[in-house]
C-alpha cells in the first residue's frame, strides 16, 4: 500500500491532524473574497491531479481513523444508520457504485472480483475480505448501504424520487453539521431544508430540486458547502450537542488558530440505476485556521469572507459567538493584497 493512514482521534484528545500534503489538497470552498448562497454545481469526478475532486470517492490519510470513529458513533446510537424498507435496492446500487469506483481508482487498496452475482471484495486498509451474492442481503452481515458505508468516508443520504420531489428515506449519517437523520428520515426536500435561513425565499431550493430531479444516469455532479466547527469533531450531531456545543466556549485568542476548524462538505450526486434513487454522499474535510493560513491566498480570503458575511449565516453556521476572535486572528494574515481567482492555493 502506497498511502499512509494517520492514527488519530475525532473526539476526546482530538489527535486529528493534516499532513502538509493534506493541507495542500484541502477543498477550500471560497472562489472569491465574499460568500452568499449559489447553486455552485460542477461535473464530478474531475479536477487537478491529487485534489479531492479527481476520483469518484476520495480516499485520504484520514480513512482508517474516520471509519473507527464511525464505529464508535454507531455503537452509541444505531439510529444514525436507517433505511426504510423500500430503499434496500438503492443500497445495493450504492454498494455497487462505491465498490466498482474504488477498485478502479485505488487498485492497490481495493479489489473487486465479479462473476455474475458472485462478488469478492477486498478492502486492504481495513483488512476486510468478503465473498457475497449481489442483491442477496442474507450474504452480508448487515444491509448493503450500511455494509459499504462503514467502509467509505463521508455521510450518505439516499433519496427516493416520487411525486416530483425527493424523500430522504435512507442514510448513514455520523459526520454531520448539526442535523439529524433520525429527525429527517422520511422528509421531502423542502421539509429537511426548512431550517436553512434565507435560501427558500431566494428560490434556491426550487432551482436545486429541479436540477436534482433532472440528474440522469452517468451524469454525476458535485458542490461544496461549508461551516465552522470547534475541535476536529466529525460527530457534531444535535443528539450529542451537549458534548460539543459547550466546546465553542473554550476558544481563546491564544488557541483559536488550532481549535477553530473550517469544515467543508464535498457533496456529490449520483442517479442510481436499478432503484432510480439519488445517492447524495456528503464528505467532510476539516482544517484548522493554522493549516489554512499556511496558504497565503486562503488566509487573506478566509479573513475577508468571515469578516463580511451576512450575520444570519454566521449564526446558522454556528460561529457567530467566536466570529470576532476568528476574524481578529485571521487579520494578521491579510495584507490587503488581491487574491487570485478560483479555489486552489497558489503554487
Amino acid at each position: 500500500m502506497t498511502m499512509h493512514f494517520n492514527d488519530e482521534t475525532f473526539r476526546g484528545d482530538y489527535t486529528y491532524h493534516n499532513s502538509p500534503e493534506a493541507i495542500r489538497r484541502f477543498p477550500f470552498p471560497f472562489d472569491q473574497d465574499s460568500y452568499m448562497y449559489s447553486v455552485n454545481i460542477e461535473q464530478h469526478p474531475g479536477g487537478p491531479k491529487g485534489t479531492p475532486f479527481e476520483k469518484t470517492f476520495d480516499v485520504d490519510e484520514h480513512y482508517v481513523s474516520e471509519m473507527a470513529d464511525r464505529e464508535i458513533t454507531l455503537a452509541e446510537d444505531p439510529l444514525r444508520c436507517q433505511s426504510l424498507p423500500h430503499m434496500e435496492l438503492a443500497g445495493w446500487d450504492l454498494l455497487e457504485l462505491i465498490m466498482v469506483s474504488k477498485a478502479r481508482d485505488y487498485p492497490e487498496l481495493f479489489t473487486l472480483h465479479r462473476d455474475g452475482n458472485d462478488w469478492h471484495w477486498i478492502n486492504r486498509p481495513l483488512g476486510i475480505e468478503k465473498k457475497f451474492t449481489f442483491l442477496d442481503p442474507a450474504t452480508l452481515p448487515c444491509g448493503p448501504m450500511e455494509y459499504i458505508t462503514r467502509q467509505t468516508q463521508g455521510d450518505f443520504a439516499l433519496l427516493h424520487e416520487r411525486d416530483n420531489n425527493l424523500w430522504m428515506d435512507a442514510g448513514m449519517i455520523t459526520s454531520q453539521a448539526d442535523w439529524s437523520l433520525d429527525f429527517d428520515v422520511g422528509m421531502n426536500f423542502f421539509e429537511w431544508h426548512a431550517p436553512v435561513p434565507k435560501a427558500r425565499k431566494m428560490g434556491v431550493f426550487d432551482k436545486a430540486l429541479k436540477f436534482l430531479l433532472a440528474v440522469g444516469q452517468g451524469q454525476h455532479y458535485r458542490r461544496l458547502n461549508w461551516t465552522m466547527t470547534v475541535n476536529p469533531r466529525l460527530d457534531t450531531s444535535p443528539e450529542n450537542y451537549h458534548k460539543w456545543g459547550p466546546e465553542k466556549r473554550t476558544v481563546t485568542p491564544e488557541n483559536v488558530g488550532q481549535k477553530q476548524f473550517l469544515r467543508v462538505e464535498l457533496q456529490t450526486f449520483f442517479r442510481l440505476p436499478r432503484s432510480n434513487a439519488l445517492a447524495f454522499p456528503i464528505r467532510c474535510y476539516l482544517a484548522n485556521l493554522e493549516d489554512l493560513v499556511s496558504q497565503p491566498k486562503w488566509g487573506r480570503r478566509l479573513h475577508r469572507v468571515l469578516r463580511d458575511i451576512d450575520p444570519a449565516l454566521a449564526d446558522y453556521k454556528g460561529f457567530a459567538v467566536n466570529q470576532k476572535m476568528i476574524v481578529e486572528y485571521l487579520s494578521q494574515f491579510d495584507d490587503g493584497a488581491p487574491t487570485s481567482p478560483g479555489i486552489f492555493a497558489d503554487a
Binding site: H86, G216, G218, S275, N276
Partner: peptide
C-alpha cells in the same frame, strides 16, 4: 441516450 425513468415503480 442512456436510460432515464419518468415512470418508476413505487417500491413502497
Amino acid at each position: 441516450s442512456v436510460p432515464s425513468n419518468l415512470f418508476q415503480l413505487d417500491l413502497r
